[in-house]
């Protein structure tokens, strides 16, 4: 069994390397030998620019500076949204009054994509950091709230009955049963929210900013500098992947009880 498993894994790796190598070779081939090369750079050129951009500034900052701005924006907006979203969502899931009051307004606003808020938010807050935080907040808030809400609603009533039979007070039932029960759902929401937040920061930076990863690709586009656009995309992809991995690791630690056969 084990040997078979190792073989399967090796096969997977070989194919993966083969696939990615083919991809890069095809890219290099097309850009070197066909007319596409006139508009689109080859992989080597992109890689070189990527390395350079850690040392040579693009606009006002090197890549580090742009990354710092983008990530800071995401974190500020996201953390505020997550905290508020969990509170509002759980309030809606546990109290019918809160649900009746908040839900209609929430449902009115929820269908509007976060990106559609950008013009209004810029109009309100101008061009500083605040509008970016606000857009990221809007992008993350709905997901976290919605998931915390369903999570709190779906707590197994037998567990609540059981806690009551053990003499647990209402406050303790909330803290020790409802909250941990909804944790996996809240995490699911926070994961989706983080990727939405990352998307929202790009949009915000593309539409009104002087720095950040979104600005890099827009700058590349404005100056018809395709290598720069591709560098931006690579960096954005890597950061997105890192953020998602961090969330997954946090989930694995905090919700280990929720997985089948550990």
């Amino acid at each position: 069994m084990k040997k078979h498993f190792v073989g399967e894994k090796a096969e997977k790796t070989v194919y993966a390397i083969l696939a990615i190598a083919t991809f890069f070779l095809a890219w290099a081939f097309i850009t070197t030998f066909t007319a596409a090369g006139e508009t689109t750079p080859g992989p080597v050129e992109v890689l070189k620019l990527l390395v350079d951009s850690f040392f040579e500034p693009i606009g006002r900052f090197t890549l580090y500076g742009h990354l710092y701005y983008s990530i800071r924006r995401v974190l500020v907006g996201y953390v505020v949204a997550a905290v508020l979203g969990i509170i509002v969502g759980i309030a809606m899931g546990t109290s019918r009054y809160a649900e009746a009051i908040i839900k209609p307004i929430f449902e009115l606003i929820r269908p509007i994509p976060p990106i559609a808020w950008i013009p209004l938010v810029i109009l309100w807050f101008g061009v500083g950091e605040l509008p970016k935080y606000a857009i990221i907040f809007i992008g993350s808030f709905t997901n976290v709230t919605l998931n915390a809400y369903t999570g709190a609603q779906r707590v197994d009533p037998t567990l609540i009955g059981c806690a009551k039979m053990l003499g647990t007070s209402d406050r303790d039932i909330f803290l020790r049963v409802v909250l941990p029960s909804s944790l996996p759902q809240i995490f699911a929401g926070m994961q989706v929210a983080l990727s939405t937040a990352w998307m929202a920061v790009l949009a915000a930076e593309m539409i009104g900013a002087q720095e950040g990863c979104g600005w890099i690709i827009l700058r590349g586009s404005d100056t018809t500098n395709i290598p720069l656009v591709l560098v931006g995309m690579v960096v954005i992809g890597v950061v997105g992947l890192l953020l998602a991995t961090i969330m997954r690791m946090a989930e694995r630690r905090l919700c280990s009880w929720n997985r089948m056969d550990v």
């Binding site: 197994d156 567990l159 009955g161 647990t168 020790r176 049963v177 929720n258």
Partner: peptide, 27 residues
């Protein structure tokens, strides 16, 4: 409901997020 009656459920109704110790000392 009250703590003077202990219930054992068909579905066990253990708190999935508590360890064995956590469940037993819950009351």
């Amino acid at each position: 409901p009250g703590a003077d009656r202990g219930v054992v459920y068909q579905t066990t109704a253990l708190f999935p997020f508590c360890t064995v110790m956590g469940n037993v000392e819950f009351g």
